[in-house]
Design a protein around this nucleic acid. Structure first.
Lengths: 295, 295
DNA sequence: TCAGCCCATATATTTTCGGTATGCCAATGG
DNA sequence: CCATTGGCATACCGAAAATATATGGGCTGA
């Protein structure tokens, strides 16, 4: 079965005439006539009744017409859909994000994405510091919203914003009465730490901050997520130095205070596999920049 | 869009390899490779990711594949449907029947048709003596179950059975006490008559019967259908000579008696346009013969 | 590093498609 | 009754596209 023949067939059926259909198809009448006869030979039954004033569908022709139109539409739609996906006007994107960013970013990011790509299908996956690389490399997620950025040769990174580091403490802590906490006050206090970056443990923003101010904080516990960190802080296990946006997911009883003399921040980045060429990534990046930058 | 390209595309997508797909399509690998690239050029986007171990669909390719399979199936189904219609294995038939036959024939004919052609779509139309020809000639109905047969050069007729003529009378008529009514007893009694055949008024079975027995019955009324005839009989307007099957639709208070010495019958025929070549007509004819003959 | 696998490219051959010219049939009109 | 017209079918030719064969080139794994 050739789709062209079906197209011709539909044209002739609609025009009820070979000549008229040929005109509309911008071709000569004889080859069209030949194609119709070939189609009939292929089906094995006449599809038209030839009258002296044109052609008329037989029952068999009607049965074919009913499907042929749909098949043509589907094929055309398939090509169009492929183009739309390739151009990023449509598609599916699987978005990984780290817990800390969920409350701060997603509520604004999702409407922004839907505005940019109305037909988009969104999938979400929560990432933790320890799983995020693997899920990107496995193509489990298309893009990841990370904090801090991933450092890996296969992964491309685009910084879209930054979050200042703040001190999280229980509201009953005496430090909470200060508007901004001097770094020196932290010396010796127990710290709830997040995982250090696998590749480059020395690069942790918190580690760097403490080292620079020559402050030493013993690590009371190491946890996977900011939520766990805040829980332990609330339990009096220690203090935590967290990105400001974690405040949005903080339980009652936790307060955040800026650190005096420290403008350190931690990068928020969009990460994806270098070999992912989905045009949706670019669109996603634009949306993420718009949403994250002003934070 | 060429359906062949889509077929190739589906094959390669399923085999995840040009070589394997070429083997399954029984063609060489290079032309298949070329066709896939042409399809990609036509869509304007890569549909596969070329790896060292074969080909893998891109997102755009997945979008196309979802439609392409369906389009192929539809096109194939269309051809198959056309073949089935042409071969009479499927289709739509519009059946006209005369009132008198409805109760006697349809309840057995319909299941028989469904047995013969499971997927058949049936349309029914009631015919009267005055409309039956026009509705056949207008292709308003495909076949007509008539009694008696139509006589018209454009219409083909096949006799499928016959109905003996019987006398219909009110139960309170004195004649109803006889088991079979001698023809002579009818002489002079008023007759409720049906329309005489347009083409050949002399050929009416009832007229012929009366003439042969030299019985004269004045025509009390002329009616269109056997139902009307029976109503008038019940009203005491006269007697009617009707095909036996009319008994099945008779109201309470009407009795049918055979006519002694008269084995006259009226033909039941299937009629259709000579230029209708639907193979369903033949099937219908077979069913009608099977159902009507034993009556 | 060499063989094997797999896809891409090049060239030749065959198939098929579309165009032009023309024939055939039926209906219409003088 | 014949000529004209409208419409489809057939014949033949040139062009385009598909397929086959031969070959190149990259990655992989022994």
């Amino acid at each position: 079965m050739d789709l062209r023949r079906l197209r011709y067939f539909v044209a002739v059926a609609e025009a009820r005439s070979v000549g008229k259909a040929a005109e509309r198809l911008r071709m000569a009448q004889p080859p069209l006539s030949v194609q119709i006869r070939k189609l009939e030979a292929e089906v094995g039954a006449p599809l038209f009744r030839r009258g002296t004033r044109g052609m008329d569908l037989t029952e068999a022709g009607q049965a074919l017409l009913a499907r042929a139109g749909e098949a043509l539409a589907l094929a055309a739609d398939g090509v169009e859909a492929a183009r739309a996906v390739a151009a990023g006007r449509r598609g599916r994107i699987s978005i990984g994000y780290m817990f800390a960013l969920a409350n701060a970013v997603l509520p604004r990011l999702i409407p922004e994405l839907r505005r940019s790509i109305p037909g988009i299908e969104l999938h979400f996956a929560e990432l933790s510091a320890s799983t995020r690389e693997a899920r990107l490399l496995d193509r489990n997620v298309t893009v990841a919203l990370c904090m801090p950025a991933i450092n890996h040769p296969e992964i491309q990174v685009a910084r879209v914003g930054a979050q200042p580091l703040m001190l999280a403490m229980p509201i009953r802590s005496p430090l909470s009465r200060l508007g901004a906490v001097p770094m020196a006050k932290l010396h010796g206090r127990p710290l709830i730490a997040l995982p250090r970056p696998e590749q480059d443990p020395a690069s942790s923003a918190v580690t760097a901050l403490l080292r620079r101010h020559q402050v030493v904080m013993p690590i009371a516990s190491r946890v996977e997520t900011v939520h766990s960190a805040m829980s332990l802080v609330l339990a009096g296990e220690g203090l935590a130095i967290l990105p400001a946006c974690a405040k949005l997911g903080a339980p009652q009883g936790i307060v955040f205070r800026p650190l005096r003399d420290a403008t350190d921040s931690i990068d928020v980045a969009v990460c994806w596999r270098r070999d992912s060429h989905s045009p949706l990534i670019r669109t996603f990046l634009k949306c993420a920049e718009k949403v994250v930058a002003p934070m």
